[in-house]
Design a protein around this nucleic acid. Sequence first.
RNA 1: GCGGGUGUAGCUCAGUCGGUUAGAGCGCUUGGUUGUGGCCCAAGAGGUCGUGGGUUCGAGCCCCAUCACUCGCCCCA
Length: 438
Amino acid sequence: MIQVPQYTRDLLPADFSNDPSAFVHAFQRVETVARASFHRYGFQEIRTPIFERTELFARGVGLETDIVSKEMFTWLDRGGDDHEGESLTLRPENTAPVVRAYIQHQMWTKSDLVKLFYIGPQFRRERGQRGRFRQFFQVGAEVLGSNDHPAIDAEAIEMLMGLLAELGIGDTELRINSVGDEECRPRFVEMIRRELADKIHLMSEATRQRYETNPLRILDSKAEEDQPFIENLPSTIELLNTECRDHFEAVCRYLESRGIRFRIEPRLVRGLDYYTKTVFEVVSFSDAIGAQNALLGGGRYDKLAETLGGPPTKGFGFALGLDRIVMALPETTAGPGRPDLFIVHLGAAAFEKGLLLAREARTAGIACAIDFEKRSPKSALRLANKLKARFALILGENELESGQWTLRSMADSSQETIPASDWLASILAAIGSVRNAE
RNA sequence: GCGGGUGUAGCUCAGUCGGUUAGAGCGCUUGGUUGUGGCCCAAGAGGUCGUGGGUUCGAGCCCCAUCACUCGCCCCA
């Protein structure tokens, strides 16, 4: 048997799965709610290719990041035409592609504030565990333009918290920090190197490695043996320059004025190199979530566009892990697919008639089911019942001869006779009244 | 890349000290009298016990290997 590739999965209709966190309808629901929310906040949808030139992520996300250094699905395209074979990569995240599109289409010429959102699969070649897959789905958004007003950050976070509330997701915590800009970074690095110089040999191997390559990342080390040292480090917030500090404090003030609760997490450093100033994440404490409990994360990236060859552009963005959001949903939403009408056909002539009636019903907007087996009335009604059909239209020889058809209500077993000449109107009326009552 | 756990029917699982024909519930099909669902009752279909080797008179059960899945580390959403 050929199965899905390792650490990927099928999202299925509820009928075919007993895992609510893989119900395709739950994903659809989150997407629908998110789209409506994006619309209210003035975001427009963008769809970028599922693969990009490898260089985009190498430059945008950063060569030293785990994502780029060991988690990308990358291949060399075969040459041909006038192209040499070029290195392509399944997108591991969607911010760099959106910024690429912003630059490529010179969006700044149309508007000085561009707000875009995306929904789609992302790919990382990771090990896989609860809430982590090699193909996973993100809903994300980017605000691009000349302005880095802290209210932009706060407004996006406000939208996210509203979205979680709308979805009924509670038991979460918003964590926020500032990683400063190119002026603050060297101070962080210098401070970390200075403070840890005589202790680094006692710390974890990963941390010793980062001491050389990326000292900032030491801050969010989870290694047990590192904790005492990290906790004693001075707060990086103290080292922010005036501009970054004012910005951070303003973001916090804007959140407070909206009644949004958050925790300042001085050790929150995100694993993508492009972040500047604000970084944040929301974690879930739900039992349904595994150890990977970050539902969403994001931040400001005021240098990314330039890194990718565009004009100086301020940026703020975030991504929600759809797979994890769905795990955190309070209840499993039953999907649609309940037929209004099931056609019971008895005999070959009735079957032929039924096929045409199904077409007419569907054209009239009725969810109509008909099956292709010869069935006894008992078996056909069993099936209608299993499908939770609201009504069964019974077509047998009697009905065909008399032109008086039988419409059975599955809810209360009552039956009425409807004239063939006016059957659609009769059924529409019946369905309408039942739907109102439901 | 590194650890732990689990593999028996479509699904969830039981299977005693290693013993003869491997079970249950759910689901599926059919039937319980003429053309009428749900509840109930009955019958039926469905298994190379993940795979390969080994130990043994005898392996679903013990041992080894392997594969798959799963949870965690790392990292991230």
